[in-house]
């Protein structure tokens, strides 16, 4: 297993729209393991393949405090069950240090493939629903900052660019 590099906003690669996974192979599973390790180290509760510069429709999540409940979604398709929006202060491993309120539907159903390519559907609500939608946005080249006002987004971008320059 290895910790992968997480791309940071405004890296243009985060805007790539991911391609569906054609076949779940050992290579896919190895990527999943690396993504989980990367997510746990961050620390995060969700990570999309896009964020580690792999442009396949695949994401991992683990909402547990003990980091012992990893979930894998390959080629996830989401259906909104309850159009009512809920607020949450989202943060993103690709936008480190910024948390902003985003509104999203509170209840969704997701159909996806699991780690061994098995198809499943499940209903999610609360933070799990929010996190899943946040990660699927990544697969579509979207970031949570896209939901903010242009002014806020620009300010975050400039500050992050400055930190990235300083680090380079």
């Amino acid at each position: 297993m290895a910790i992968l590099e997480i791309l940071e906003f405004p890296d243009p690669r985060l805007r790539t729209v991911a391609e569906p996974v054609v076949e779940v192979t050992d290579a896919t599973r190895s990527l999943i393991d690396d993504m989980l390790e990367t997510m746990y180290a961050a620390p995060g509760i969700g990570l999309a393949a896009t964020q580690v510069d792999v442009h396949q429709r695949l994401l991992v999540m683990d909402l547990s405090e003990d980091q012992d409940a990893p979930q894998v979604y390959i080629n996830p398709e989401v259906e909104i069950l309850d159009p009512e929006l809920g607020e949450y202060d989202e943060g993103c491993l690709s936008v480190p240090g910024y948390y902003e309120t985003v509104n999203r539907p509170r209840r969704v159903r997701v159909a996806a493939l699991g780690r061994d390519g098995e198809a499943f559907t499940e209903e999610l609500d609360g933070l799990a629903a929010i996190c899943l939608q946040h990660e699927i946005d990544h697969l579509d080249g979207k970031l949570f900052v896209d939901y903010l006002t242009p002014l806020k987004r620009t300010r975050i971008r400039k500050k992050l660019e400055k930190t990235q320059r300083r680090r380079a």
């Binding site: 547990s64 405090e65 202060d89 609360g126 933070l127 799990a128």
Partner: peptide, 11 residues
């Protein structure tokens, strides 16, 4: 409690 997931409510 609304701002965290069900898994983190007890924590």
């Amino acid at each position: 409690l609304d701002a965290v997931g069900p898994q983190d409510r007890a924590l």
